[in-house]
Design a binder for these strands. Structure first.
Length: 804
RNA sequence: GCCGAUGUGGUGGAAUAGGCAGACACAAGGGACUUAAAAUCCCUCGGUAGCAAUAUCGUGCCGGUUCAAGUCCGGCCAUCGGCACCA
């Protein structure tokens, strides 16, 4: 027999068989126990598959293959998140319709995925750009609109200067566009918004009910940013009242000035009362011009203007205090105005120092507040605060809140950092928003029977400089009749963001060909929720949050049976280039999966990517290390040469086999693929040492390895003449009692230092073990004439004698 | 600044109800086979001292708890990721 197996031939052979037999199609038998494994469907880019994709896909493929062998009805689907800018930009450059570009890219991706032997159910493939799919994306939008959760609003939005398109807050990273890295500026635009803020509390609470890795939960919690505080009403010398939000109502006596955001509506109302209004207006203009980038870069230096002629009255002591405007107060958070307590807030302290404002200590316990703000709320006692004096911060918060509520000038309030989701994009390649504007009736949804509202063909996909979608030029399409009054009306020309289609795709997989509903009730009740979802950390506050929001909404309107879409969420680390840097064309460190499949085979690629390191951590690619995985599979292949006719497990291997079954079974569930493979390698080394393998030993080994290396194991299974196909076999059981050897080696320590090794029966008593240990020559020598203070026996591990 | 994570050989990484640090690999060195190379097989492989048995140090740094600390506690340092004037 050949030493090295012909992976190219074997892999093709089994991929064809799986395809032909529909081996991995999920069954519609809803009486079976189910497992729904999910990975993020890719954006089919022109570059093809990245070696990072298979890391996630292989891991859940392994879990799915194991679950099938354990008797589960498994749904492991794949599809295409195909709307998006790169395709559109490619189409513009090369004058090809985006749908054709998409089709070609999908073809290439599909070929690559198939070449890696993933057990996807291809009969359930979905494509977000298919009208029969986005019909339901549009349908969900209409339901959101009907429930008042989609609204159009003119507001200042993030605008990417290069994409010529608005961005959601989640898409702005460090003041630049998440996708292209270009500058993001603010622009007043009328945009469709989704009220994700209505779900802030539910999105937070839901996190307590799901099994997501902690860093995902923490990041979502931080992003939603809940804080409990008090809303307090301040009066002014003009009699106009305004509200502020504070989490430190206990420091109210220390408020020495107020700050409003430059965009605060009261400022224009006070135009003729403010004596330095020109100066104020100038500051407002300046603040508006700043990009996000400048705002964050210049964050340290506080600027502002005092409103001359208007003062606020502190309700606790009726003191008149000045009002400033400054861009360190944001209009979009809280009430857009704050009370400033420089003694106990660093930002207020900086501002007070710059403008020479009084700093009054109201919480004692820190250093001199003239030198530094004292912000600790754990220690410290209230001073200079009348009826709050002597209380702790926590006590004072409660007391002042009661006092304010009683006077009717304060309420308990919860605020969130989360903002509503800007949902329109001024681009072509996205789902049309199914809304019509009528002069008489306002925004009117199109009738559900008219869905899908198909994206029309246009001559040019170029984004326009005036900030309109390319669809705006299609007057035939734009001009329509109002569904309500039948009068003339215009269609919405913006499209949905890339995140729309992916916000519910996992539901479609349950029933992908249904043209009556997004998925049938029965299908959803059986398959939902997703049992295990693996994906990238970069989607934590984007796709993962958005899809939870949509799902919760669909739950509220009775479309889906569960409040949370995913039971379990894990995340893989990135695969870096050989030099430890992120893989990118410009760094020239990109590895093409096709090359690896060609030179080493899909099974080696799969094993290598799982063996590369801790699944959750980033790991650099190593061309040299792949050889180790290839060698391992070559050795597994070579075991066939030493296959005996014997059945059962041999005596010398029995306990090791049981241990390996246990280890692999548990490690797969814990995503510790690297140690599962290491355990298989160790077992292989033991088998090689024995120079023969029984049929049952080989059988068990092949089943355990099958999820990792499905092709070679199927081939060997067939060569051995085992029953049926390996993918129909049963996952082996292990016997806990057989996992331990009857004798074990323990170490004997004296004062914690190893002095001897000893083979003893595993179930020996402590007394016997210690007695045996003392008989060891190296030990008796050490303890003779000394006092034994303490004797310890840790079963199956060690004996430690403490002597003096 | 806040939140989270990480720090172990030449490299990727194992090992936490505290119990033999370095599993499993890669690379490197030596040997076998070969005309030769590749492949394969065998041996060595944390530092220092020693021919060796062995001794001694060693899991970012400093301290503590313990018979015993990579693991627990306190205090630092460094790196990475997220958020960032959120009141």
């Amino acid at each position: 027999m050949e030493r090295n197996y012909d992976y190219t031939k074997i892999e093709k052979k089994w991929q064809d068989i799986w395809d032909e037999k529909q081996t991995f199609a999920a069954k519609n038998d809803y009486t079976l126990p189910k497992f729904y494994g999910l990975v993020e469907f890719p954006y089919p880019s022109g570059q093809g598959l990245h070696v990072g994709h298979p890391r996630s896909y292989t891991a859940i493929d392994i879990v799915s293959r194991k679950k099938r062998l354990e008797g589960f009805n498994v749904l492991y689907p794949m599809g295409w998140d195909a709307f998006g800018l790169p395709t559109e930009n490619f189409a513009i450059k090369n004058h090809i319709h985006p749908s054709i570009v998409t089709e070609n890219n999908i073809k290439n991706f599909k070929r690559q995925l198939k070449s890696l032997g993933f057990s996807f159910d291809w009969s359930r493939e979905v494509n977000t750009t298919d009208p029969s799919y986005y019909k339901w994306t549009q349908w969900i939008f209409l339901q959101l609109f009907k429930k008042g959760l989609a609204y159009k609003s003119k507001m200042s939005v993030n605008w990417c200067t290069s994409c010529k398109c608005v961005l959601a807050n989640e898409e702005v990273v460090n003041g630049v566009c998440e996708r292209c890295g270009s500058e993001v500026i603010h622009k007043e635009k009328s945009q469709w918004m989704l009220k994700i803020t209505d779900y802030a509390e539910k999105l937070l609470e839901g996190l307590d009910t799901v099994d997501f890795i902690d860093r995902v939960k923490t990041q979502q919690r931080n992003w939603i940013g809940r804080s409990y505080g008090t809303q307090v009403t301040f009066n002014t010398n003009l009699g106009d009242k305004f509200d502020i939000f504070t989490t430190r109502a206990d420091t109210l006596f220390g408020a020495t000035y107020m700050v409003m955001s430059p965009e605060h509506p009261l400022i224009s109302k006070w135009a003729d009362k403010i004596t330095n209004y020109e100066q104020v207006k100038e500051y407002q203009t300046l603040a508006a011009k700043k990009s996000d980038f400048e705002r964050t870069e210049l964050a340290k230096d506080k600027t502002g203007v005092k409103l001359e002629g208007v003062t606020a009255i502190n309700p606790v002591n009726n003191t008149e205090i000045p009002i400033f405007i400054s861009d360190y107060v944001l209009i979009s958070y809280g009430t857009g105005a704050i009370m400033a307590v420089p003694a106990h807030d660093t930002r207020d302290w900086d501002f007070a120092k710059k403008f020479n404002l009084p700093i009054i200590e109201v919480v004692a316990g820190g250093e001199d507040v003239q030198k530094e703000a004292f912000t600790d709320c754990q220690s410290g006692v209230l001073v200079n605060s009348d009826f709050l004096n002597g209380l702790s911060v926590e006590q004072a918060k409660i007391k002042i809140q009661e006092w304010l509520c009683e006077k009717g000038i304060g309420t308990v309030k919860t605020n969130y950092k989360l903002r509503d989701w800007v949902f329109s994009r001024q681009r072509y390649w996205g789902e049309p928003i199914p809304m019509v504007y009528c002069e008489k009736c306002g925004w009117v949804p199109i009738d559900e029977s008219e869905l899908p509202l198909v994206l029309p063909n246009v001559d040019s996909y170029e984004p326009t400089d005036n900030g309109e979608s390319p669809l705006a030029k299609m007057t035939d399409w734009v001009n329509t009749t109002c569904p309500h009054c039948k009068g003339p009306a215009k269609r919405e020309t913006d499209t949905m963001p890339q995140w729309a289609g992916s916000s519910w795709y996992f539901l479609r997989y349950c029933d992908p060909h249904n043209d009556k509903e997004l998925a049938s009730k029965e299908a959803l009740e059986y398959w939902a929720p997703v049992d295990w979802y693996n994906g990238g950390m970069e989607h934590t506050t984007l796709h993962l949050l958005y899809s939870r929001f949509w799902h919760k909404f669909l739950y509220d309107i009775g479309v889906v049976p569960n409040a949370e879409p995913y039971s379990k969420r894990t995340s893989h680390g990135m695969i870096l280039g050989e030099n430890g840097e992120k893989m990118s064309k410009s760094r020239g460190n990109v590895v093409n999966p096709d090359e690896i499949v060609k030179n080493y085979g899909a099974d080696t690629m799969r094993v290598y990517e799982m063996f590369i390191g801790d699944f959750e951590k980033a790991a650099p690619w190593s061309q040299a290390s792949i050889k180790g995985s290839k060698r391992f599979l070559d050795k597994v292949w070579a075991l066939f040469d030493i296959l005996s006719d014997e059945k059962g497990y041999s005596k010398e291997l029995e306990s090791e086999i049981h241990r390996t079954i246990k280890k692999v079974t548990e490690d797969i569930e814990g995503l510790k693929m690297n140690t599962a493979i290491a355990a298989l390698m160790t077992l292989l080394n033991s088998i090689q040492g024995k120079k023969s393998i029984t049929r049952d030993e080989y059988k068990t080994f092949l089943i355990l390895l099958n999820p990792f290396a499905p092709h070679i194991t199927e081939e060997l299974w067939e060569m051995c003449g085992f029953d049926g196909m390996l993918n129909e076999a049963k996952w082996p059981d292990f016997d806990e009692a057989k996992c331990v050897d009857s004798t074990v080696e323990i170490v004997v320590q004296i004062n914690g230092k190893i002095k001897a090794r000893l083979n003893i029966a595993a179930d020996i008593s402590a007394e016997e073990a210690i007695a045996l240990a003392k008989q060891q020559e190296a030990v008796s020598k050490e303890i003779s004439g000394k006092n034994i203070i303490k004797e310890l026996y840790v079963p199956k591990k060690l004996v430690n004698l403490v002597v003096k």
